[in-house]
Design a binder for these strands. Sequence first.
DNA 1: GCACATGCTTGAGGTTGTCAAGTATCGGCA
DNA 2: TGCCGATACTTGACAACCTCAAGCATGTGC
Lengths: 142, 142
Amino acid sequence: MWKTGGAHAAEAWTLLLELLLAERGRLPAIAATLRLSPAQCHVLHLLEPGRPVSMRRIADALACDASNVTGIVDRLEARGLLQRRVVAHDRRLRVIVVTRRGAAARARLLARLAAPPPPIARLSRAEQRALCTLLRRAFAPT
Amino acid sequence: MWKTGGAHAAEAWTLLLELLLAERGRLPAIAATLRLSPAQCHVLHLLEPGRPVSMRRIADALACDASNVTGIVDRLEARGLLQRRVVAHDRRLRVIVVTRRGAAARARLLARLAAPPPPIARLSRAEQRALCTLLRRAFAPT
DNA sequence: GCACATGCTTGAGGTTGTCAAGTATCGGCA
DNA sequence: TGCCGATACTTGACAACCTCAAGCATGTGC
């Protein structure tokens, strides 16, 4: 006990893990309503409209092999949700951009993901605000 | 805005989702050190030693089809980490219990999962304690 | 006893994930 | 200039996960 982050850090993270595992089924379920797979949703989530991203960066974000991204992008491109493009300064790169249809699908996806699960929704308004503040601090660069 | 849980609930959940997606690679990585897959880890996580669980309940917890559980349990059983058993009162059921080896693997798994990711570890001790309190409240039955 | 529901398994088919190998391009260096 | 190693992506082989439909064994209600 009382190691790196202290016992409270470990307990907080463990509770968050429980939340994650309990909500594990939500992403596939939401994905299914959009006829997407979880991985495809993750890629779409990354692709802010108008902000091209290389496949290398996508593979890093998904924490998986680059060869994997090829297939996922293949299927999304076949459905007209995104496009591969080449950039002049480095012809090895394939840069990915969402199409208009892709952006619409992404917006629907984000809207459905935003609905908080019961444990969060159950908190009082003040507690929710406190949780927000804490999480913003956790992500702040310092 | 200001719908079901309030705007703060949605923002808090969105921040948590970011954390989840960012930490998405951790479970596979930890799983790999134990030569397990993420789904196998999830099953092991459920199986408190001495507490048999039916495959039906496992499928519900994983939010997936029952036929899926058959394969996952097959592989874990083949490695001696758990056992199928039948119970007298309902011979349709297959009840799963971890073996001694399975319990040891589970303990290692839980220990590695407990290490909090950077955003949580970065919080001050007081903030971590506050986060803990909030999350405990979120999971409390009311 | 019969119809129906439930728990599990099997098989087909698609997606995700790994690894190894191959192609194209870039950058540095003689 | 020309070569060499690194980098970005693709392809192919294979394992795991996941869903659906079908089938078998067992329980439950009429």
